[in-house]
Design a protein around this nucleic acid. Structure first.
Lengths: 235, 235
DNA sequence: GCAATAGTGTCTTTAAGACATTATCTT
DNA sequence: AAGATAATGTCTTAAAGACACTATTGC
C-alpha cells in the first residue's frame, strides 16, 4: 500500500550499471577500480546515488554519461533487479537498483572521481576475479538476462553498428552465449524471421571471400519462434 | 560504483505486492482499499516500508503475512521491477520495489491498519478501475510477467494445490492468458514435457465423466520447448 | 587455379495444430 | 443408453539441425 515509507530512515538509493559491449570481439563489461574504502583497489560496477528529483532511468543514463562515458546514442538500457541486503554496503544501508546497458563497440570507460582506473573486462577473463560489494551477483544476473533475451528478442542488434552483416550478427550470439552456431542455419533464421533484419542494397568490403550483404535492424522486437541456444561447443 | 548514496536524503524505500491467485476460476489480484489520504477510498496494492534490517525479499514476505494473509506455504515470490518516479507518491520521495506473488487458491486478504477494505479482484473486472499511485502500471507489469513466464516455465503449478489434474492445469493457462487451449494437445504437451508434472497412481473424484488422473509438480523449472500462447478465442 | 568467406538447398527430425477416436465415469 | 469428461491417436505443417553445395571475392 506504500504506507509512509519510513522517511529519514537513512536508507540510500543508488543505481549500478552492467554496461556490456563487444570489445575486440569478446563480450565485455565496463568496470571501475575503486580508489577509496570500502573495497579500495578492487573492481566494481560503475554506479552512483539517485538524485533527489531523478527518476531511476535518468540516474542510469546520467551514470552512463558521467561516471562512464557515452551519450544515449543507440544504447539499450533496461532495469535488471534491485539489491538491498542489509550488509551489502559496509558504510550503511544502500538499496541499489541494477541496470543493464547494451551498446555497439562503446568507447573506453573513463576514470571519474575517486576511481583509480576504468576499463573493459572480457567476461571470460573475469571468471576468478572478485568484485566489490555484491557486484558479482549483479553481473551474473545481467549475463543471464542478456543471454536469455537474445533467444526471444531482436536485442542482439544493439551490440552492432547501424549497418552490419549476418556474420557479425552471428558473432554477437556466439560471443554472448560462448558457443558456436551453424552459419547456414543462422543465416536462414536471421533473414527469414520477420522484423529481425532488413536487407540493404550494399555490401561490406570483402575480406578475402565473397562480400557480405549489409543489413540494418528491423522494426520487430521479438523473435517468434525464438532462436534457441543449444549449438556446438565454442570454436 | 555505489558511492555514498546520499544518506539522509529522505528517500523512502517500500515494497508493493501483486498477489495473484485463481479465485473462483478467474485470475485475481489482492487489493486493499485505502482508508487515508492520499488516494483514500481508491484501491491499491498491498505494501509497506522496508524495515531497517530487512532484505527486500523479507519485506515482501512480511507484507504477504501481515498486511495480506498467508504463510510462505507454497507461494512463489519474485521481484518484478522497481518504481521510483519522483512524483509517484504525493507525500514525498518513495522508491518502491514491486514483487509478484503466485499461490494456490489463497485465503481472502484481511484488512490491516488504515485499510478500509481488502478483497480479491478478478483481473478482468478491473479493466476500467483506477488504482492508487502508479499501481496500474505495476499490475500490468506483473500480468505481463506472469503471462510470459507460463510459456517457458513450470510456474503454472504454483496456482494449483499439491495434487491436480491436467484439466486444472489447463485451466490455469486459460485463466491467465484469457484464451482457450486445445484439450488434447495440451494434455500431450503437459504430460510429455520432462519435469513438468509427475503422474500419480490416484484419480480425482469423477464429476460426471471419466475420472481424471492426478499429477503433482515435477522437478523441472523450464519448459523446453516453450508452450506458446496463440490458441483460439476465449470460450 | 586455390583458399576463404557468404549464402542456398536438401534431408531428417521434432513438435505444434487440428482434429477424430477411444475410455470411463454419472444419470 | 445418453451425456459428460478424460485421454490417446492420426495427419498435416512449421521449423530446427546437420551438412552438402553453390557463389563471389583475393591471392
Amino acid at each position: 500500500m506504500d504506507t509512509s515509507a519510513a522517511p529519514g530512515s537513512g536508507v540510500g538509493v543508488a543505481v549500478d550499471l552492467v554496461i556490456l559491449t563487444l570489445h575486440e570481439g569478446r563480450l565485455s563489461v565496463a568496470l571501475v577500480q575503486r580508489g577509496e574504502e570500502p573495497f579500495a583497489g578492487t573492481w566494481a560496477l560503475p554506479g552512483g546515488p539517485v538524485g533527489e528529483h531523478e527518476d531511476l532511468d535518468q540516474s542510469a543514463y546520467r551514470v552512463l554519461e558521467n561516471e562512464a562515458m557515452i551519450g544515449e546514442e543507440s544504447v539499450h538500457v533496461e532495469q535488471l533487479r534491485t539489491f538491498g541486503a542489509p550488509g551489502r554496503d559496509p558504510r550503511g544501508r544502500v538499496v541499489s537498483v541494477a541496470f543493464m546497458a547494451l551498446g555497439a563497440d562503446l568507447p573506453a570507460p573513463r576514470r571519474g572521481a575517486d576511481v583509480a582506473d576504468a576499463r573493459w573486462w572480457a567476461v571470460e577473463e573475469l571468471a576468478g576475479v572478485e568484485l566489490g560489494f555484491d557486484h558479482r551477483e549483479v553481473l551474473d544476473c545481467a549475463l543471464e538476462r542478456a543471454r536469455a533475451k537474445l533467444e526471444y528478442s531482436t536485442l542482439a542488434v544493439t551490440f552492432l553498428p547501424a549497418e552490419f552483416t549476418v556474420t557479425q550478427l552471428r558473432g554477437v550470439y556466439e560471443a554472448v552465449w560462448g558457443s558456436g552456431l551453424d552459419a547456414g542455419n543462422f543465416h536462414r533464421k536471421a533473414t527469414r524471421t520477420p522484423g529481425f533484419v532488413e536487407e540493404l542494397d550494399r555490401f561490406a568490403a570483402p575480406t578475402g571471400g565473397r562480400p557480405a550483404r549489409l543489413y540494418r535492424a528491423g522494426t520487430g522486437t521479438t523473435l517468434q519462434p525464438p532462436l534457441l541456444r543449444s549449438g556446438e561447443e565454442s570454436a
